[in-house]
């Protein structure tokens, strides 16, 4: 998949460079090669599909794309990261056929683009994790809020030993951060003192090496490097998230500009089918329905 992405974008990059060199009149980046030219109907599909956006949705989208390509040999699906906001924007301006977003679509985004259609393809839990050595096993949502807002700064204020709490978070604009803020923080702001890392993987590594560190991770990134905490007594497991007792859960969305047609419609249909949802589950996300 990666190779395909590289090969596909090399000419676009070149084109971009030439455009910049030729005349600096055109607007930024949007003039990169119009891709889907041949409208395809009927039984056998052929052509290209561009899927762009959230790096949280990207891995599962890549696996789904591979399975879809096996079903439709004449279709090539290109999956590219960039972030939730980029996903929404690309779907709106047509650079992508489908945008990916690992958060709710904002009201402002819907107001600007009333044509936007949201397809929830999976749900994902966000776990609160600490460094392995932290003795606390359970926190209330209020405590979590206090810690991330910088009001609770020592583990002994939350039932642990005397150890300074280090908050690790994602950067501004990340879908995981936006979902965490919406689901846990309400109107409170994440402390400016937090260590910010630009990906789930980097957050996990940082937490694992800092004594007393706390952070949040997508369920897909849980492993023995960090210790997941129970929230209000409920452990962050797929089972509890599916049953609704674990509440820090966000939708993983795909968006299209207007109702999907052709390949895009077929791809979304495939994702929502039993086979597609089985793939979603095997990648560690919660299937929809």
């Amino acid at each position: 998949m990666h190779k395909k992405v590289v090969m596909k974008y090399a000419p676009i990059a070149l084109l971009g460079l030439l455009t910049v060199l030729g005349a600096c009149g055109a607007d930024s980046g949007n003039d990169a090669a119009p891709d889907e030219t041949v409208p395809v109907e009927d039984s056998s599909l052929s052509g290209e599909l561009n899927v762009v956006g959230s790096t949280t949705v990207q891995p599962v989208a890549e696996v789904l794309a591979e399975a879809f390509e096996a079903l439709e040999p004449d279709v090539i699906v290109f999956v590219q990261g960039g972030g939730s906001s980029v996903g929404v924007r690309s779907a709106v301006d047509g650079t992508a056929d489908i945008g990916m977003a690992s958060r709710e679509i904002k009201l402002s985004e819907l107001q600007e683009n009333p044509e936007l259609r949201i397809h929830t393809i999976a749900r994902d839990g966000i776990a609160i994790v600490t460094e392995i050595g932290v003795t606390v096993d359970n926190l209330s949502k209020e405590q979590i809020k206090g810690i991330f807002a910088g009001e609770i700064t020592n583990w002994n204020e939350a039932g642990g030993e005397n150890l300074v709490i280090t908050v690790v978070a994602r950067e501004e604009g990340s879908g995981t951060r936006a979902a965490f803020e919406e689901l846990v923080m309400d109107d409170a702001l994440i402390t400016g003192n937090a260590i910010l890392q630009p990906s789930n993987g980097a957050v996990r590594t940082s937490i694992s090496v800092i004594p007393g560190a706390i952070g949040f991770l997508s369920f897909g990134y849980l492993d023995d490097q960090t210790k997941p905490l129970a929230v209000d007594g409920v452990l962050p497991t797929e089972e509890f998230a599916a049953s609704g007792s674990y509440t820090i859960v966000r939708p993983l969305n795909m968006v299209t500009n207007g109702n999907p047609e052709g390949i895009a419609a077929a791809f979304l249909e495939f994702i929502k089918s039993e086979d597609g949802q089985a793939i979603v589950a095997s990648e560690g996300y919660l299937p929809v329905n």
């Binding site: 972030g83 939730s84 980029v86 950067e171 604009g173 990340s174 879908g175 260590i195 630009p198």
Partner: peptide, 21 residues
């Protein structure tokens, strides 16, 4: 103390930034 550099500010956030940001 922790900090952020000018270059880091761009690299960390540009992926997600839109509009005025």
């Amino acid at each position: 103390s922790r900090a952020r550099t000018l270059t880091g500010n761009i690299a960390v956030e540009i992926n997600y930034a839109t509009g005025l940001h």
